[in-house]
Every structure is written in C-alpha cells, then in structure tokens.
C-alpha cells in the first residue's frame, strides 16, 4: 500500500517514513506542508495521505483544510489526519463527505505499530479509523441524554470499537468474544439507538458517528 506523508517536524517525518517502511508500506512522498502534499498527491496518487493538522505556514489548521480538499478532489484516496489533540468538531467536518476512506487519530497512536498499520490499511481500503478518545467523548456526551443508558456496558464497548471503524472480526478479537456475539450486539445497538442503516452495511460507521454527533 502506498502512503504520502505531510508532517512539519523533521523528526516525526523521518520517524514515520521509517516506521511505515518497516510495516511494509511504500512511502511515495514525505513533505513538510499542505501545499507540498497536494502537489505530491496530484503527481503520484497514493492509497492513503497521512497528514498533521498544524502545518506551515501558519501552523493552525492547514492540515485539516488540506484533508477536506483531498476528500473532495480525490475521493479515491484515503485521508488519515494525525494530531496532538483530537476535536469532536473536526470529526464532523471530516464526515461531511461521508465516512469512506477517512481517519482521524491522535499522534500517540503511532507508538503501536500494528494498530497504526491496521488503521492506515483500513482507511486505504475505504474504511475508517477514528480515535478512541473522540469516540469516548461522543459517547460520554450522549450519556447525558436519555435513551443511551439502555445500552449495556458490553454494547457500549462494541459501539466504541465500531465507531472507531473496526470490523466485526477485529472487535471480536479485541473483546475476546465470538464474531457472532459481536453481530448480535451490533443489531441490538442499532435497534436501541433507532438507527435506520443495517449493522452489516459498510456505512455503519457514518450512521453511528452521525448519531453520536447529533
């Protein structure tokens, strides 16, 4: 799988390049700003573009804006945004054009190579990868509202992993339960939250996130 990187810290940029090579990715470009990434993507389209939120020249939200541009201009390319902080409001912006091939992770996640690589692959294949921190913020926020309390603890755990973008198989593995059980939990969650999409649909992440984000 081919990855392009935009990260202004040279330390992290080179670290990421090495890390991704180690995990079997081909790094097509490693640039320091959003404009460079947009050019690199146009020249040699990767499967996934990996980018930091704060990038030169203003070090504010260039990365986020570039991510949204990429999602509109190159819908086939997965976009994974990395940041030192995760913001619920940024998730909503990223989801505006659907939940296909998009991810938003805390930079800390690069320290777990296997998980990080899995997240990139998921995004590259058109899935999604959202940081557990965002999901827990969204679920915690919903907990203040009625209805949410009906979910059992196990259902909540499944909901969180589902919202992160994981497959049933991955959820089953993570929670050490059978895949059939995960499916049962998913159906229950969708019924309880009154979600119209099917729990088997590939757009279920969007449905869940939109529901949580309401």
């Amino acid at each position: 799988m081919r990855v392009a990187i935009a990260e202004d810290s040279i330390l992290l940029r080179e670290g990421l390049t090495r890390l991704l090579a180690e995990a079997g990715f081909e790094v097509t470009a490693a640039v320091e700003d959003a404009a460079g990434l947009l050019d690199a993507v146009a020249d040699d389209p990767p499967d996934v573009a990996l980018l930091d939120i704060r990038l030169p020249p203003t070090h504010t939200d260039e990365g986020l804006r570039a991510a949204i541009t990429l999602r509109t201009d190159h819908p086939g390319i997965g976009v994974l945004v990395l940041s030192q902080y995760v913001r619920v409001s940024y998730v909503a912006e990223l989801l505006e054009s659907g939940a296909d091939g998009v991810g938003y992770l805390l930079k800390d996640r690069v320290s777990d190579l296997a998980e990080f690589a899995a997240a990139i692959r998921r995004v590259g294949r058109g899935g999604s990868a959202f940081d557990p921190t965002v999901i827990s913020q969204l679920i915690g926020r919903r907990a203040h509202n009625q209805g949410q309390d009906e979910l059992t603890d196990r259902e909540r755990a499944v909901l969180a992993l589902m919202a992160e973008g994981r497959s049933n198989q991955a959820i089953a593995q993570r929670l050490s339960i059978a895949e059939r059980t995960v499916e049962k939990h998913c159906t229950n969650i969708f019924v309880k939250l009154d979600l119209s999409a099917s729990p088997h649909d590939h757009r279920r992440v969007l449905a869940v996130l939109r529901h949580l984000n309401e």
């Binding site: 202004d8 810290s9 330390l11 992290l12 670290g15 990421l16 090495r18 890390l19 180690e22 995990a23 704060r54 070090h59 030192q84 930079k107 800390d108 690069v110 320290s111 777990d112 190579l113 296997a114 990080f116």
Partner: peptide
C-alpha cells in the same frame, strides 16, 4: 506553540521509536 513543536514532537518520536522496538 513551543511545547507543541518541541518537547511534544520529541517525545512522540521517542514513543514511535519505542513502538518500533516493541514491534521488532
């Protein structure tokens, strides 16, 4: 900004290296 661009990035790169070491 200094913390973000300096210490935080440096610590992240350490975490990344340790993650790599952990994986290999």
């Amino acid at each position: 900004r200094d913390l973000h661009d300096g210490v935080q990035q440096r610590l992240l790169s350490v975490a990344m290296t340790l993650g790599l070491a952990e994986a290999t």
